[in-house]
Write a protein that binds this DNA or RNA. Structure first.
Length: 809
DNA sequence: CAGTGAGCGAGCTTCCGCTTGACTT
């Protein structure tokens, strides 16, 4: 029996707070939301003014029972969930579900977990804010209506099991539209001219000065004209301009910026970042990791000041207050920072250490002084020409925060060298070492990484810190988006070099367009997006969330009634759903590529029941012959596949001949190219075998390899039952029985010794299979391996190919 | 596991946001 029961959302928080409060307080956690809308019949009584039906989630039953019991015994229940829309709703659900009494329930909030803040909160309790709760209910119900009404339309009109939602569908749209921009992008080339000069100072020391021509030439002719004009030219320093500038540190981490920096600096996926951060949080090393606030507590600011002074001196301290720019931020927490800033390192595995280091540096740097820079611009005259070269340099006058931390950018091209310029004076004469024109190409827009997509969503005010990572995972699990690395292609570029008054021409090769862990839309992602834009343009609008958020805010301050807001949205929306179901065509992404030269029949591609496919001929009435079908291969897409590539798809299956008097056939199945022989299948080796060219000899090798593998796989069969086998798998020996697999206990030394009865016993005692909810996966076809050689991810690997030295006189 | 792509059709799929384990066929 306790006097006071305090309920917070997170168990780690509960542990910390308990220390600050006396013995008369018991602190427990609700583990987030405890109730949600029923899944049956929408969980909303639409006809009855959208009355929601909430049920306790199955995984929360235990918590609720325990809290109920404790609440009954306690004299006062303090609900201390977060001070935002969701937190208020959690408080209300607790109040309702635990059947609390108003007079013995107190609602308290605090933004930082310090003794003072918490004691202060206890001194100033309030009531549950019904308006805020209603804003959350409106949010929840709107999302349910959108998701559960549109998804079934997709099942009917596109493909079963698909999903649509306010957040995920827009996330996919961003990726689809970016991909189309990239597909239609036409790169243009231009020539950039750089020059290298030497200058000898008074002491006779030779120094180098690199400069660039601001003007770009679009053709080779113009470039050559320019270079030719520079023959026998003299170069002088024309002008020197020095300009001071400041650079400010970035704000402390929020969830989104942490995900971005961990991606850029550490190569983490967004979900990996969150997992590692969670561990740091649970160990008490960092503050809460799901936040949109950039605010630091007074205590944190004070320790930052002390720590920076101690490490670098008082000159380096500049205490700053940052304010949130992102739309819809609710700021229930602090920014993500180390709990104790004087702790420079943590124990733990390497990723935890690295992420902590990043957080520590970012937090410290955010309270350090500006870096003072001096930018120098030197203009260089060309005696034979009106153009001027420009040399730029940047000098750090005072490091400030740069001593600790510099935020990275997503721009891969931006690796501007920090060149220190030599001391020169106006009028100095320069010797030209070379003037070189290099062919460059305009860049297509970049593909999204997981983290840059999160940034974009945050900029649009779509999604919350707790959902960024799950959303990114969902759109991949649904098969709308794939994360892939791809090799680039080789491209030639020209270099024209003026050395010793002669022009040398070279053609070099560079690798371009290589991608490392980028997001690509799948065909189904594109088709679904097109369908949704066509029929549900308002939901797909990038401003939809921002607009409904405005209304939620109105509800939160009591200026709008939530049922009215939902009603105004729902009725036209629902009518549109009905209309779409009735009138819209099936969306298949069909594209007619042309005609088969052999049969003259039409060849088209579209989404089929099992994914993207090509079709030869149509099932017209009166036409006896059925159309032929073939799945598209990995890397082929509805929007970009050519007629020739599609024709090739119909060249399979190929009959290779006989082996042991049985046919050997090569074809492509759900799991890629394979050889079939005597009812057995063997996969072709990736990147080695090509189903179009593989010969009988090689196919036999694969068949034999497969036989050997099967021999190794099989450990024991039983006469009693052919369906029961002991096999060797990726995780060691296991029992296979009636298409189900069962693991063996670790202490079994030799599985061969198991008897039939032993096996049945193991099967019986095996834990019940869970519902196959997690087992569901995107089509196997899309599961491209992320492996890629390290060298291919480098942007520019230039290798000289041929050297055509056609020096002009 | 494996060449499917209509036919007959039951029953299922699905949202966003708040939390942490359980457990890798």
């Amino acid at each position: 029996m306790v006097e006071n029961l305090v309920i917070v959302e997170s168990p780690a928080k509960a542990k910390t707070i308990e220390k600050f409060l006396g013995d008369s307080f018991l602190v427990k956690s609700s583990f987030g939301h405890i109730r949600d809308l029923d899944k049956k019949d929408f969980g909303i009584d639409i006809k009855n003014n959208f009355t929601p039906k909430y049920i306790v989630s199955t995984d929360k039953k235990k918590v609720v029972t325990e809290l109920k019991k404790l609440a009954k015994e306690a004299e006062t229940v303090w609900i201390a969930s977060d001070e935002d829309r969701e937190g208020e709703a959690i408080a209300w659900h607790l109040f309702e579900e635990l059947k609390l009494k108003k007079e013995k329930t107190k609602r308290i909030v605090f933004h930082e977990i310090t003794k003072d803040a918490i004691l202060n909160a206890v001194e100033n309790p309030r009531q549950i804010d019904d308006n805020l709760v209603n804003a959350q209910q409106a949010r929840r119900i709107l999302d349910r209506l959108v998701g559960f009404e549109i998804s079934p339309v997709l099942w009917k009109k596109v493909k079963p099991s698909l999903s649509a939602g306010r957040v995920q569908s827009v996330a996919v749209r961003l990726i689809v539209e970016r991909e189309r921009e990239i597909i239609s992008f036409e790169s243009e080339s231009f020539f950039k001219v750089i020059a290298q000069f030497t200058i000898t100072d008074e002491k006779g020391v030779e120094k180098t000065l690199k400069a660039e021509l601001p003007k770009r030439f679009s053709t080779k002719e113009e470039t050559l004209d320019f270079l030719t004009s520079c023959k026998n030219a003299e170069y002088h320093i024309d002008d020197i301009v020095k300009k001071p500038s400041l650079r400010k540190p970035a704000a402390p981490f929020t969830t989104s910026t942490l995900q971005q920096e961990a991606s850029r600096k550490l190569g983490f996926s967004v979900s990996q970042t969150m997992t590692v951060a969670q561990r740091l949080y649970e160990a008490g090393n960092i503050t809460y990791m799901r936040t949109d606030s950039v605010n630091l507590s007074e205590t944190a600011l004070n320790t930052a000041k002390e720590e920076i002074t101690r490490l670098h001196g008082a000159d380096y301290v500049k205490i700053r207050k940052y304010s949130t720019k992102s739309k819809g931020a609710q700021e229930a927490h602090e920014a993500i920072r180390p709990t104790y800033l004087n702790k420079h390192k943590v124990e733990g595995e390497s990723n935890e250490k690295r992420l902590y280091d990043l957080i520590w540096k970012r937090t410290i740097a955010s309270q350090m002084s500006d870096a003072k820079l001096e930018k120098t611009n030197i203009k260089i005259n060309i005696s034979t020409n009106e153009e001027k070269f420009v040399a730029t340099g940047e000098m750090i006058k005072f490091e400030g925060f740069l001593k600790v931390y510099l935020e990275s950018t997503d721009d891969e091209e931006q690796k501007q060298e920090q060149s220190l310029l030599p001391q020169v004076n106006v009028g100095d004469k320069l010797e030209s070492e070379f003037v070189k024109a290099v062919q460059n190409f305009t860049h297509r827009p970049p593909r999204f990484t997981e983290a840059s997509l999160v940034k974009k969503l945050e900029d649009l005010g779509i999604g919350r810190p707790s959902t960024y990572a799950p959303t990114i995972t969902t759109v991949q699990n649904r098969g709308y988006v794939v994360k892939e690395s791809r090799d680039g292609v080789q491209r030639q570029y020209e270099v024209l070099n003026l050395i010793d008054d002669a022009i040398e021409e070279e053609t070099l090769i560079q690798n371009t367009g290589a991608e490392n862990k980028k997001l690509f839309p799948s065909d189904i992602g594109m088709v679904v997006t097109d369908f949704l834009i066509k029929h549900f343009s308002n939901i797909m609008n990038y401003n939809f969330t921002a607009e409904v958020e405005k209304e939620f805010d109105e509800i939160a301050v009591g200026k709008m009634v939530w049922q009215e807001m939902i009603g105004k949205f729902y009725h036209p929306f629902h009518a549109n759903v009905e209309k779409t179901l009735e009138e819209s065509e099936r969306e298949t992404g069909e594209r007619i590529l042309g005609n088969d030269p052999k049969t003259g029949k039409v060849i088209l591609v579209r989404i089929g029941r099992y994914g993207p496919m090509a079709q030869l001929g149509e099932s017209a009435e009166g036409d006896e012959e059925k159309p032929k079908f073939a799945s598209l291969r990995t890397g082929q897409h509805l929007e970009t596949i050519t007629l020739e590539e599609a024709i090739d798809l119909f060249k399979l299956p190929r009959d290779l001949g006989l082996y042991e008097d049985k046919k050997v056939v090569v074809a492509i199945g759900r799991f890629g190219p394979y050889v079939r022989h005597d009812g057995k299948f063997a996969s072709l080796h990736k990147d080695v075998d090509d189903p179009m060219t593989i010969d009988l000899e090689r196919a036999i090798v694969l068949v034999e390899e497969k036989r050997e593998k099967d021999r190794l796989k099989h450990i024991k069969s039983f006469e009693e039952d052919a369906e029961l086998q002991i096999l060797n798998g990726r995780w060691g020996p296991y029992i296979s029985y009636q298409k189900e697999n069962y693991r063996l206990a670790k202490d079994i030394e030799d599985p061969k010794t198991l008897s039939y009865e032993d096996c049945l016993k193991i099967i019986k005692s095996a834990p019940k299979k869970k519902t196959s909810k997690v087992a569901k996966k995107a089509p196997a076809k899309k599961k491209a391996p992320a492996k890629k050689k390290a060298t291919t991810t480098k942007k520019k690997t230039t290798t000289a190919k041929k050297k055509t030295s056609t020096a002009k006189k």
